[in-house]
Design a protein around this nucleic acid. Sequence first.
DNA 1: AAGTTGACGTAAC
DNA 2: TGTTACGCCAACT
Length: 126
Amino acid sequence: MEKRSSNRNRKEKSDFFERVYRVAAMIPFGRVTSYGAIAKYLGAGRSSRMVGWAMNNSHRAFAAGEKETIFIPAHRVVNRNGILTGKHHFGNSTTMQQLLENEGAIIENDRILNFSEIFWNPSKEL
DNA sequence: AAGTTGACGTAAC
DNA sequence: TGTTACGCCAACT
């Protein structure tokens, strides 16, 4: 029995993060999803926070076994309200919004108006 | 080493 | 309908 919790046992990186990266990378162009949706797809349930954390580390994300960094379209991942909660992590607060608008999303006041239209559910469509 | 925080979400009040 | 509390697990201090 090995300790899989506590103390970063990054022996092979957490399965969670690994999956999060993959799912996030699968988000189609012009579509968006939520942290919860990804967490749910992973069977994480409520651990949607980890998804966000994974994104935070996505800048140095490595897939298990892969030696190349994966581009994580973090701008396509928003909270369940369709609000760009992580916009502040893109360096410039406008970057995330601009990227999404460039993909056809309609954003106003940091919120995706057509969120329900472009929402991409991994559990459903994957 | 232990406690706190964190790109969230759901339930309860 | 807005706010408060809690859970989840890893990273950070």
